[in-house]
Design a protein around this nucleic acid. Structure first.
Lengths: 341, 341
DNA sequence: AGTGGTCGCTAAACTGATTTAGCAGAGCAT
DNA sequence: ATGCTCTGCTAAATCAGTTTAGCGACCACT
C-alpha cells in the first residue's frame, strides 16, 4: 500500500534545501536558525507534494512508533470490551497514536506470541487489560517499557486503572436506604471464589464491602444473602425463587450484576410480583439489557470507556503507580420505589 | 521498549559470517548456496542471542509490515464487534500478522485521520468494516492497496464478506412450517427505511425476501406484518401488544431481531401467554440475551467470528471480488413448538 | 596454459527518516 | 590583516534490516 509517496528528499529538493533543513522545519525544531523564508518553502513543498513521513523509517531512527499495544485476555466474550477499546482509541487518537490489538485468550502460548509480536513492532507502551477486574501477574517480557494495567492490578507496582466497585456498593445500598428500605433488603450473588481469590475477581469483594459499609453505618442488617455459582441469569432466577419461598418477603433486592437481576426479574414475573411496587431491584454493571428491561433496571455503570481513556492517558502522560479508581455512576431507573406500605 | 536487543549484525558476528549470510539463512531463502554448517551456526547464534528482527527496519526495505488495518465505523462499540475482531485476530495470528484498529465513528474527519494513520504505518491491507450490514462507498485513499469489506458491500468491485441473511430468512420460515405453523404466522419488524435503502441496511430486505420465498413455496401468507421504527425491545413490545389486540391470535411470531423478540416476550408475559405453548417465537442475530430468555429464544446466529476470519483470509490469501456469503446457523431453542391444537 | 563454470560467501547499496558535526560567509573588533 | 563570533545551512553518519552485484578459490575441459 501507499507506494510512490513523496519522501523527505523530494520535499527538500523542491524547496531547494537539504533534507536536514526540511526535517527540522517539518518537526518544528526550536533553536535552529533557518530563515522564515526557508520555513515557507518547505511547508509549501510538503503541501504541494502531499508529503507524509514514512513512519517505519522514522521509528527506525527514533525508536518511537506512535503505537500502543492493547493486550487483553479475552476481548470477545464480554461486550464491555468494546467500550474499553473505544475509550482507549479516542484518547490515543487525541495524542496521535494508534492501537495494536492482540488477544491472549488466557493461553500462555498465545500470550507469548502476542507479546513478541508487539515488541517486534517496537510499540511505545503496553496496555495490559483483563476482562474481569482482577489481580494478575504481568509477563516479565513487557516490563522493558511503559505498562499500564487496565481493569486489573498487580504486585509489580505498575500504574493501573480499575472501577470503584466499593464506591458502587455504597451507592447501591445508599439508594435503597434513602428510599426507606431497612430490614428487608436481600442480596443475590454472594460467591466465595470471586470474593476470596483476587486473581478471579476484585469486584465481588469490593462491592460486598461497600454495601456492608453503608448498611452498617445505618445500622441495618441484610435480610438474606444468596450464594450463586455464577453470575448468570439462571442463577439469579434460582436465587430469587429461593427468596420468595421464605416466610419474610424482601422489600428490595441487590444483585451483584445485571444478569443476575435479569434472572430475578423472570422469577418475579412468574410469581406475579411487580417491580418496583412489590419489590425494588438494583444491581451493578449497566449492561445494555438493564435499560431494556421492563421496568428499566437501576444499576451502577461500569465506566469502561473512561477507563480505557484513562489507561492511555496514564501510559502516555505518565501517572502514579497506585491504582487509579474510576467512579461507577448510579443509574436511577424505574426498578426503585419506597417499600410497600 | 525493547532496547538493547541483539541485531542481525550481532548474530552474524557470533556466527562468523556476514549480515548477508545471516539474513538469507534466517529468511530461509532458497537458491542460496550457503553450507549446512553455515546454517547451523546462524541458527545457533540467533537462538543464543534471543535474536528477533526489528520489523521497522525490515519493512523500511520490503514495504511489508505484517500488519492489517481494521477500520470500522462504529463496530468496536457494539456487542457483536468483539466477535468480528476476534475472528480477524485469530486468522491474522495464524498468518503471523497483527491488527491495527481504528474507528471512524461515522465522522468524515475521524475517517480521514484513521486512514492517514494506517497508511502512514504502511499496513499490508485494510479491512473496512461496518456495524450494520450495508452498502457503502469506500474512501478512495485506501484503494492503493488490498481492501476487503466486512459486513458491507460496495460498488467498487471489492471482495466483501456478508452474512447470508436471505438464507437465514428461509431457515426461520422453514423451521415454523416444519412444526405445522401455516396461516397464523406474524412478522414483527418491517421497516421501510431499512428495507429500501441499502446504505442503511442490507439485512432487512434480505431477511424479508428469504422469509417470503420459503412461505410462498409452501403457499402460505403472513397473518400480519408489523412495522417498527427501530429494532429495539420497546418496539417489539408495542408491536406484540398490537397483535394481541387483533381478533385472530398468531400461532407464531417471527421477529427481525432478538431485541424485538425480547420486547415481544415482555408483552406476552404481561398478557399471561406462554411461549411456546401459546405462541412460538423465532428471530435473528443470536444476541447473548437469546439464550438467557425464559424460555430460551430460537434464532439464527450472525456468524461474526467466522466473518472476521474470512475477511482476513480474503485479504491475505486473495479471493474473488464478489461478496462472500457466510451462513447463519439456526439455533433451535425452547421458544418453538407446534401450533396449539 | 587458458577458459569457463560452480561453490560459498561478502561488500556495498538501499530503504527514508533523524541527528551530529561542521562549513562558508558576513560582520565586527583588534 | 587577523581572529572571532554569529548566521544559515548542509554533508554524512546512523538506525537495522534486505538485496544486488560480484569476488576468490577450486575444478574440469580443451
Amino acid at each position: 500500500m501507499g507506494s510512490n509517496r513523496a519522501t523527505l528528499a523530494d520535499v527538500a529538493r523542491r524547496a531547494g534545501l537539504s533534507k536536514t533543513a526540511a526535517s527540522m522545519v517539518l518537526n518544528g525544531r526550536e533553536g535552529t536558525r533557518l530563515s522564515a523564508e526557508a520555513h515557507q518553502r518547505v511547508f509549501a513543498a510538503a503541501e504541494e507534494l502531499g508529503y507524509r513521513p514514512n513512519l517505519a523509517a522514522r521509528s527506525l531512527r527514533t525508536r518511537k512508533t506512535a503505537t500502543i499495544a492493547f493486550v487483553s485476555d479475552i476481548v470477545a466474550t464480554t461486550r464491555f470490551a468494546g467500550d474499553l477499546i473505544r475509550g482507549a482509541l479516542d484518547a490515543a487518537r487525541e495524542r496521535d497514536h494508534v492501537l495494536l490489538i492482540t488477544e491472549t485468550q488466557g493461553d500462555a502460548t498465545f500470550e507469548q506470541y502476542a507479546i513478541e509480536a508487539v515488541l517486534d513492532r517496537q510499540v511505545d507502551g503496553v496496555i495490559y487489560a483483563a476482562m474481569a477486574t482482577r489481580r494478575l501477574t504481568v509477563p516479565p517480557a513487557i516490563l522493558g517499557g511503559p505498562v499500564v494495567l487496565l481493569n486489573a492490578t498487580s504486585s509489580d507496582g505498575l500504574p493501573s486503572v480499575v472501577p470503584d466497585d466499593e464506591g458502587a456498593g455504597r451507592s447501591v445500598a445508599a439508594a435503597l436506604l434513602e428510599l426507606g428500605h431497612r430490614d428487608a433488603i436481600a442480596l443475590i450473588g454472594r460467591n466465595r471464589l470471586k470474593e476470596d481469590d483476587p486473581e478471579v475477581s476484585l469486584a465481588a469483594r469490593a462491592r460486598l464491602h461497600g454495601i456492608r459499609q453503608a448498611l452498617d453505618e445505618a445500622d441495618v442488617n441484610l435480610l438474606a444473602e444468596c450464594f450463586c455459582a455464577e453470575w448468570l441469569p439462571e442463577h439469579g432466577y434460582a436465587a430469587m425463587r429461593g427468596l420468595l419461598n421464605k416466610p419474610k418477603r424482601p422489600s428490595a433486592i441487590i444483585c451483584m450484576n445485571d444478569r443476575l437481576a435479569f434472572g430475578a426479574y423472570q422469577a418475579l414475573g412468574e410469581a406475579g410480583l411487580s417491580v418496583p411496587e412489590d419489590i425494588s431491584v438494583i444491581s451493578f454493571d449497566d449492561d445494555p439489557i438493564a435499560a431494556w428491561l421492563r421496568p428499566s433496571l437501576a444499576t451502577t455503570a461500569l465506566p469502561h470507556e473512561q477507563m480505557g481513556r484513562r489507561a492511555v492517558e496514564l501510559l502516555l502522560d505518565g501517572g502514579a503507580a497506585e491504582p487509579s479508581l474510576v467512579a461507577m455512576p448510579l443509574r436511577r431507573r424505574r426498578s426503585l420505589a419506597p417499600p410497600a406500605g
